[in-house]
């Protein structure tokens, strides 16, 4: 391997190594008494299962909301769309790409939380639902981009064949094209999921950050929301800090793992 490549690989590898090193003291057996508990609540309860469930649930919910929109837009832009409407839609999605996560979180706290506070006053409006809505808005461009790529990769002959047999354009694209791009479309959803799992700021602003089992409309925790709130607070080299690094490894493994699954042959 040549120098610059070696340097870049080394630096990115050191990043992972640092995280593992920080977590090491918490990874020996029985170092963390409640590792599989539902609450991550210092100074004495470091349950990772609750935040983990929260993270998976909020990402799944976000993709349930954003997946259909993103895939639909991707199919349309990758195959059917032409002319002004296509340019408008594609421009709108590119615009969405440029809106920072923190602005999405800010808008959701300003406009979504007050509404949810009326629906569920006991939880202050916080919970997995508002976080998932914000995440959904953020991952639509990711899903759309990869879905459109998958559709563009469909051989034109396939659709042309279907057209020649007398099917309409829409039927050909949806029947033949989508069937062919099925794998690529599901990979688009996976890549979106990877991004949703790693996002921290907007989630932290909306999820409520209380060490309770995850709920749609009551304060809950996710891995990333715990890290955002507590990483700066933990005394260095304390059990708390090591436990947080364990959560960091979980986030990294989930986000990179799911993305890698999506990137395979994509």
């Amino acid at each position: 391997m040549r120098p610059w490549s070696a340097l870049v690989v080394l630096v990115t590898g050191a990043l992972v190594a640092t995280l593992v090193h920080e977590a090491l003291p918490a990874l020996v057996p029985r170092a963390l008494p409640e590792l599989w508990g539902m609450a991550f609540s210092p100074p004495d309860r470091f349950g990772a299962l609750g935040p983990l469930t929260g993270s998976v649930a909020v990402a799944a919910l976000a993709l349930a909301l954003a997946g259909p929109v993103g895939v639909g837009a991707g199919i349309y832009l990758g195959s059917l769309a032409q002319g002004t409407w296509a340019r408008l839609l594609s421009g709108a999605i590119d615009t969405l790409t440029g809106v920072p996560a923190v602005v999405v979180g800010f808008l959701a706290t300003s406009f979504l939380l007050p509404v949810l506070r009326v629906v569920a006053p006991a939880g202050g409006g916080y919970g997995l639902l508002p976080a998932a809505v914000a995440l959904g808005v953020m991952v639509v461009p990711t899903v759309e981009g990869f879905a459109a790529d998958a559709m563009r990769a469909v051989p034109a002959d396939l659709v042309a064949g279907s057209l020649a047999l007398g099917a309409t354009l829409e039927a050909s694209v949806l029947g033949v094209g989508v069937a062919h791009a099925r794998r690529g479309l599901s990979q688009a959803v996976l890549l979106g999921t990877g991004r949703a799992l790693g996002e921290g700021m907007a989630v932290e602003m909306l999820v409520g950050n209380a060490p309770h089992p995850p709920a749609l409309l009551a304060p809950s925790q996710t891995l990333t929301s715990v890290l955002v709130q507590q990483f700066g607070l933990a005394q260095p080299r304390s059990l708390w800090a090591h436990a947080l690094a364990v959560l960091g490894i979980l986030v990294l493994a989930l986000a990179a793992g799911v993305s890698a699954l999506g990137a395979r042959r994509a």
Partner: peptide, 22 residues
């Protein structure tokens, strides 16, 4: 090299921030 870069490009910014602090 490309495979590795693709893998680590999915590292959440939050994790990078924690490392940068250290």
């Amino acid at each position: 090299v490309e495979a590795w870069l693709l893998l680590v490009s999915a590292t959440p910014a939050l994790i990078v921030g924690m490392t940068a602090l250290v």
